[in-house]
Design a protein around this nucleic acid. Structure first.
Lengths: 223, 223
DNA sequence: TGCCATTATGGCAGATACTGCCACATTGGC
DNA sequence: GCCAATGTGGCAGTATCTGCCATAATGGCA
């Protein structure tokens, strides 16, 4: 997989097995729908077991069994058991990539990125909406599980390189150094990460702050 | 391991096995010295093999064999083969923790952190000094090896939680929100990460920029 | 110096994660 | 309704990592 630096394929699943992408976003198709369904079921099973028994004590066999598939099939959908716990983040990433497509190359990288992130965050404004709920749930789990935290970091790192390359292409090299691009992306990502963490922390403490607001004040604080 | 949020033990090795810490920093002791020696030898062997055959193709057995120890003993020194490639970063972290001890709780978290980082970076100012050389070497390897990149992220993530907690204790909660602390740390760390990356990239491109300068300009760009 | 508690090491078994390969079932298009 | 493409399961094999026990080296102390 040469992976020619681009974030245009918002529906790629990173799964080696089936579904070799033929614009499934436009026409989901029956096979693709079944696939997503199975994927979702596996994730549900994984999250349930992780919550109940902890990540360490949960085996891939257990997840596969709970999801009604074989272990072999599990690994055709996810590369590791930790990955199965991150569907919410993959949705987030998909939204992010779509937003990045509409970026203005003549603007400041930092400002453009912040705008896109803020826009994506709006999808999580309502703490009771399903999207926000599942994101909160996973993040609560991540808070307690170092293995999941590491998996998320790894997931982000894998994506970061691709996104940075794509951003570099998009902004061109005219007057915008690689340092500047990397810096813009990493600092924005850091603010976002903190916003998520604080969101979850406060939610667990009973407060009902919403994500966009937290992000806004975090961005403020970061200057 | 309760790990009561504190970065005072600069010599902890995170190894389950031997050396249950008895102020080895003050009095290295013969046993401790041997231990460090073995540790260094394992790392050397690991790095050599990683460079020659790649991380994937290198097995723990291979490393242990090259280092003249058993596989079982390897896992008493490192939790994974990837960890064995990060001694330079552990040195960096140790220096960082020492610096954090001298932090001024009445100052701005952001400024204090930046000061400490800058100070630690000074130790890598000379690109030909052994410290900088080994750091560069490892980072070049990390650039090409996703597995090592992931391991570093994981390593940092593990440390971050502890450091943030310690910083929170140090700055107290008086007027300094958790958001502010987390934010300061994450953004500083992001700038540092980028500085390292750019350092290595430019070095590979033949340029001889030194780390402190790159960090300074990165910090500048990040406002 | 010699004894003893501590600690370091090695070997072994076992659990789990992950991959390649092959056979078989299912599916969607013609 | 046939055929190629695709999804699934089983199996074997490798690698990572851990617990347990026996043994050897070490350092302190009488």
């Amino acid at each position: 997989m040469p992976q020619k630096s681009s974030f245009s394929d918002a529906s790629r699943t990173d799964v080696p097995g089936p579904s070799t992408a033929e614009l499934p976003a436009a026409a989901p198709g029956l096979r693709e729908r079944r696939r997503r369904q199975t994927r979702a079921e596996i994730s549900q099973a994984a999250l349930r077991l992780f919550q109940e028994y902890g990540v360490d004590a949960t085996t891939v066999d257990g997840i596969a069994n709970a999801a009604g598939i074989s272990q072999r099939t599990f690994f055709r959908y996810f590369t590791s058991k930790e990955e199965a716990a991150l569907p919410a983040h993959q949705d987030f990433d998909a939204a992010l990539e779509i937003g990045l497509l509409a970026i203005d190359p003549s603007g400041s990288p930092r400002e453009e990125l912040e705008r896109v992130y803020q826009q994506v965050m709006q999808g999580y404004a309502d703490n009771d909406a399903p999207q926000a709920r599942s994101m909160l749930l996973v993040n609560q789990l991540i808070r307690k599980e170092p293995l999941l935290r590491a998996a998320l970091l790894k997931h982000n790192a894998t994506r970061t390189t691709g996104l940075v390359d794509a951003l570099m292409d998009r902004f061109g090299r005219d007057g915008v150094s690689d340092l500047q691009i990397r810096l813009a992306f990493e600092t924005c990502a850091a603010v976002v990460r903190v916003a998520f963490e604080v969101w979850v922390t406060r939610r667990e403490a009973g407060r009902n702050d919403n994500l966009p607001d937290i992000y806004a004040s975090a961005r403020e604080l970061a200057h």
